[in-house]
């Protein structure tokens, strides 16, 4: 599989990263060289192999469904670039 410039633009859009038009060609080249190197994995027959989901087979821990944290909205917005009255501020999204 080869990545063309349209794919770079599409993936950058999905990743929400603005890519300058003059860098699209370079990125396509870099992604292709990495993907080309990864293609050696196709040599391995994985038909009957299960994907690994855990390092050690342990039952996932579950905790009691009780509130253990909260009531600190100020802490939550403490590091926001823009906040008002413990709300995040964003550009207008609804007309």
């Amino acid at each position: 599989m080869s990545v063309d410039q349209a794919t770079v633009r599409r993936v950058a859009k999905l990743a929400r990263i603005k890519v300058k038009e003059e860098n699209v060609g370079r990125l396509a080249g870099e992604l292709n060289s990495i993907l080309h190197w990864i293609e050696q994995l196709n040599e391995v027959d994985v038909e009957v192999i299960e994907p690994m989901t855990a390092v050690v087979n342990v039952k996932m821990k579950k905790r009691a469904d009780i509130v253990t944290d909260g009531n600190n909205p100020h802490d939550v917005v403490e590091n926001a670039p823009a906040a008002e009255d413990d709300y995040f501020l964003v550009p207008k999204v609804i007309e």
Binding site: M1, V3, T7, V8, V11, A12, L14, A15, I17, L27, L31, I34, L35, I38, L41, V44, V46, I49, E50, P51, M52, T53
Partner: peptide, 24 residues
């Protein structure tokens, strides 16, 4: 970008699932 590409529609099995099988 690589991560977004390999997880994008149609590629998940060919890349991520295959890689997780290699981990096994």
């Amino acid at each position: 970008l690589i991560g977004t590409y390999v997880l994008s529609a149609g590629y998940y099995d060919a890349y991520y699932v295959r890689a997780q099988k290699i981990r096994t």
